[in-house]
Design a binder for these strands. Structure first.
Lengths: 159, 159
DNA sequence: TCACATTTAATTGTTCGCAATTGAATTCGC
DNA sequence: GCGAATTCAATTGCGAACAATTAAATGTGA
């Protein structure tokens, strides 16, 4: 009777854990898509997709960097970045050049248009803030928690 | 001089908002990918991708449902679900049948194998919990915050 | 020096994710 | 009832995302 009770409780816990509503990963997954959909109309005006916008954000902070550096900052590999960067180059926002020091390395630099786009992009975060209906403080606090979770997950992967 | 100061402050705020590290959306985006990578080896054993796993989670809760219902629960459209469901059908985890009441509707039902897979899946959430290095309470609290953010973003989209 | 390992991008193939369109079935307005 | 609008899934086309492989350049050890 006691062991029976324990079994029932165990099964219930496992069952609960499998519920969609209880899964933080689904919360994160579906929120990422929701962000993407909110960004879409804003980024359409800049001629960027969301991943392209992330690359531009990274380059506005520091440019003339190898593809690998970008990948480490954005947690993306060359299989994703190479075609994306070719599209940004076709849009004349960046230039891709082989390093003379090390011919394996492709350096990514902003063009004048790439730099200029930054001014238009400044309006974007404001719109997102409004859509989120949160204070800056709340968002920053949540961001820190989520980043901490991400870093713990990535730490497990690195083992 | 005063207006100068204000302008400088304004620019600084906009610049800060464009910084990658300050963007909650990037935190969510990169955490979703981190989850995906942690799930991968676990789901490989079940023969599922992460989005397929989400569909199975939804179906284990309630099956014999139209594609549209699944889409609403997972925030996905038929362009994503139709090919994914065809792959699950090819794997003999689900069956797709036209409703006799309304021939437009395709009903998704689990096969015996689909139901059976649930037992193997019960080990998954435990492994994720371990990888996250958080307590259940912490994760559930974060989940609620993230879901609240997602729902506010989706509310803006619905306008 | 020369074989061998490592590093770096690029490529290939599969699977999402979504906008836009299509086509069939159903419902609504008159 | 009947034509028009709506609903639903499927399709098409494009852009990620990543595993696995390839190829070239660089580094390392005997």
């Amino acid at each position: 009777m006691d062991s029976m009770t324990i079994m029932v409780r165990k099964q219930t816990a496992a069952d609960q854990a499998l519920r969609l509503d209880n899964q933080i990963c689904f919360a994160v997954y579906s929120t990422a898509h929701a962000f993407n959909r909110v960004y879409k109309p804003l980024l359409d005006r800049l001629g960027l997709t969301y991943p392209q916008y992330l690359v531009m954000l990274a380059l506005w902070e520091r440019d003339d960097v190898p593809v690998k550096d970008l990948g480490e900052r954005l947690f993306l590999d060359s299989g994703t970045l190479t075609p994306l960067l070719k599209r940004l180059e076709a849009a004349e926002l960046i230039k891709r050049t082989r390093s003379t020091q090390d011919e394996r390395v492709v350096l990514i630099a902003l063009t004048q248009q790439g730099h200029a786009l930054r001014e238009k992009a400044k309006a974007v975060p404001q719109s997102i803030l409004a859509a989120s209906d949160c204070t800056v403080g709340e968002l920053l606090a949540m961001k820190d928690e989520i980043v901490a979770l991400r870093d713990r997950l990535n730490a497990v992967l690195g083992e």
